[in-house]
Simulated assay, not measured.
Amino acid sequence: MDMSENVVSEPKTGIEFVSILTFKHQSSSPNSQVLAGVGFKGLNIINIKTVKIYAFGFYIEAKGLVDQLSTKYRSFSLEQLKASTELFEDLLRHDLEMTVRLVVHYKGLKAGMVRSAFDTSLRNRLRKIKGEEDDDGLDIFSSYFSDSLPLTRGTTIDFQWMQGGRLRTEVNGKLIGVIYSSNFCRALFDIYIGDPPVSLRAKQEIAEKIYQLFKS
């Protein structure tokens, strides 16, 4: 994986994300994605403090985005685009290549905590998307986060939505597995750009970046 020298800092955690990711897999040509927004996942502790669990960066393959969606949205103003629920529904419906990169911030994080949190969220999103919470990809995904998986501060987890409804998961650059399920891809990414999102501020940033890409 090649990285640009330009970085963006997530303001609440200070974790930095490169502005461009370039993936090269054996079965595909090089794929570059631009950083569209950053945010963090927090956990409220008895309404006293918020523990910052991880920061995330949301990346998207710009050419595919512009080719498939710019005609529909190019005339939108920035405020119209930010207020559009249909834009994000289109992102989840179209065969666009996107990546969510997580970077662990909370040094006490355990794999079981991640597994449990994602299981609850994904079942809710699957129910919304396909009318039922079961999906072949769910058990596979949960198996990635076995108790033996170390999640020290700074651990990087990449969820890559590849063409054809494939979800490729890497931890610290090492391939963990590939899930073949368009619905599961949609459910996972709906956590970040659906309703409600993990971070509304990040979702607004993503809309702003998409607006820039449509106007460029």
Rank of each mutant, 00 (worst) to 15 (best):
M1V: 09
M1H: 12
M1S: 13
M3C: 07
E5M: 07
E5P: 00
N6R: 12
T13Y: 08
G14H: 10
G14M: 12
I15H: 03
E16Y: 05
F17A: 07
F17Y: 13
S19D: 15
S19Y: 07
F23Y: 14
S27E: 14
S28H: 14
S29H: 02
S29E: 09
P30T: 08
S32K: 11
Q33P: 02
Q33N: 04
V34T: 13
V34W: 09
A36M: 07
G39F: 07
F40V: 05
K41N: 07
L43Q: 13
N47C: 05
N47H: 08
I48M: 09
K49H: 04
T50D: 12
T50S: 12
I53L: 13
A55T: 01
F56D: 03
F58N: 01
F58D: 01
Y59N: 00
A62G: 02
K63C: 07
D67M: 12
L69C: 10
Y73A: 00
S75P: 00
S77Y: 00
S77L: 02
L78H: 06
L81F: 01
K82C: 10
K82F: 08
S84P: 03
E89I: 08
L91G: 02
R93I: 04
R93N: 15
H94G: 00
H94E: 13
H94A: 11
D95R: 00
L96M: 03
L96Y: 05
L96W: 03
T99Q: 03
V100S: 01
L102N: 04
L102G: 01
V103M: 11
K110P: 00
M113D: 07
V114R: 02
R115M: 10
A117P: 00
F118V: 01
D119E: 12
D119G: 00
L122H: 06
N124A: 15
R125C: 13
L126M: 07
L126F: 06
R127Q: 12
K130T: 10
K130R: 15
K130A: 08
E133P: 09
D134S: 14
D136S: 14
G137C: 02
L138H: 01
F141Q: 03
F141G: 02
Y144S: 04
F145W: 12
S146M: 02
S148G: 01
L149E: 08
L151H: 02
G154P: 07
T155C: 03
I157Q: 06
I157W: 09
F159W: 05
Q160R: 10
W161C: 07
Q163T: 11
G165D: 04
E170Y: 05
V171D: 04
V171W: 04
V171M: 06
G173M: 06
K174H: 13
L175D: 14
G177M: 08
V178W: 13
V178P: 08
I179A: 09
I179M: 05
S181F: 09
N183K: 09
C185P: 00
C185Q: 04
D190F: 05
I191S: 14
I191K: 09
I193V: 15
D195L: 03
P196T: 05
P196E: 02
P197C: 06
V198E: 08
V198L: 07
S199Q: 12
S199D: 15
L200C: 03
L200G: 04
R201E: 15
A202T: 06
K203W: 02
Q204R: 09
E205N: 10
E205D: 10
A207G: 04
Y211F: 15
Q212K: 11
K215C: 05
